[in-house]
Amino acid sequence: MKFDSWSAFWAMGGYGFYVWLSFGVTILALVGLVISTRSTRKSLLRAVKQKQARAARRKAAQKLENTL
C-alpha cells in the first residue's frame, strides 16, 4: 500500500485510529508480559536461594548435632 503523505500514512485510509490503537495495545501487552516474566523469575530465584540456604543451615545443624 502506497501513501501520498505522512498524514495519509497515519490516517490509514480512515482506519488509523483502530490500526494504531491495536499496535499500542499489542505493545502494551508485550511490555506487561516482559515485566511479569522478570518479576516472576526474580521471585522464583529468591525462593530457590532461600531453600538452598535453609538446606545448608539444616545440614550444618545436623552435622553439629552428630558431633555432640
Rank of each mutant, 00 (worst) to 15 (best):
M1Q: 13
M1Y: 12
M1A: 15
F3Y: 09
W6Y: 11
W6P: 03
W6R: 08
S7V: 10
A8D: 15
A8W: 03
A8G: 13
A8L: 03
A8C: 07
F9N: 07
F9C: 06
W10S: 14
W10A: 13
W10C: 15
A11Y: 06
M12T: 03
G13S: 01
G14D: 02
G14L: 03
Y15F: 12
F17L: 12
Y18I: 13
Y18P: 00
Y18H: 15
V19W: 01
V19N: 00
V19K: 02
W20E: 05
W20V: 05
W20Q: 02
L21D: 13
L21C: 14
S22Y: 01
S22C: 06
F23E: 08
F23V: 15
F23C: 11
G24M: 01
G24H: 05
G24E: 04
V25H: 03
V25G: 08
T26P: 04
I27A: 10
I27Y: 06
L28Q: 14
A29Q: 09
L30F: 12
L30M: 15
V31W: 02
V31N: 04
G32W: 01
G32S: 09
L33H: 12
V34E: 11
V34R: 14
I35D: 07
I35Q: 10
S36T: 08
S36N: 10
T37R: 08
T37G: 05
R38Y: 11
R38A: 10
R38Q: 15
R38G: 12
S39D: 09
S39K: 09
T40H: 07
R41Y: 04
R41H: 07
R41C: 05
R41K: 14
R41I: 07
R41P: 01
L44T: 02
L45N: 11
L45R: 09
R46D: 09
A47C: 04
A47H: 02
A47L: 06
A47G: 00
V48P: 00
V48T: 09
K49P: 04
K51D: 13
K51C: 07
Q52H: 07
Q52E: 13
A53C: 07
R54G: 02
A55L: 08
R58F: 06
K59E: 07
A60G: 06
A61L: 05
A61K: 11
Q62S: 08
Q62H: 09
Q62K: 14
K63L: 08
L64H: 08
E65Q: 13
E65K: 10
E65V: 00
E65S: 09
N66G: 06
N66I: 05
T67F: 05
T67L: 11
T67Y: 06
